[in-house]
């Protein structure tokens, strides 16, 4: 099967498969784990999957620097998301003494 060979030898297909699998694992982390911090790490994983696909396409288009520039923008947004997301987790812990997303089901105190 030629498709499998292209994936295993590290062509563009291989990087795309790694990106898709990373995204899937991140999605599964968000869906299956209840701790908010774990879900946050799953979101980080999904952002990184997008980075892998972006940089792989940039390299196979002849080393386009635009890909790296947008990678920098994604990192900036991820850093903002990390700061605000963790602040929200700390805020939830202050009010409810829990980091379990199932226990944060009502809007009232």
């Amino acid at each position: 099967m030629t498709g499998m060979e292209a994936i295993l030898s590290g062509g563009l297909q291989g990087y795309l498969v790694v990106a898709f699998l990373l995204f899937t694992i991140g999605l599964a982390t968000v869906l299956l784990r209840r701790t908010l911090l774990m879900q946050f790490m799953g979101v980080e994983l999904m952002l990184n999957a997008a980075n892998v696909a972006l940089l792989a396409f940039a390299r196979f288009r002849g080393g386009d620097p635009q890909g790296t520039v947008f990678y920098l923008f994604i990192i900036a947004v991820a850093a903002c998301e990390a700061a605000v997301g963790l602040a929200l987790v700390i805020g939830l812990f202050r009010h409810r003494s829990t980091t379990d997303s199932d226990r944060a089901a009502s809007l009232k105190q």
């Binding site: 994936i7 563009l12 297909q13 795309l16 898709f20 899937t24 390299r59 196979f60």
Partner: peptide, 21 residues
């Protein structure tokens, strides 16, 4: 996961880009 692997390995456009670059 399975759908994406199948999609990537069957895609002609991705294969062409991988060959040209």
């Amino acid at each position: 996961a399975l759908g994406s692997i199948k999609l990537v390995s069957a895609s002609a456009g991705v294969a062409a880009l991988a060959k040209s670059g």
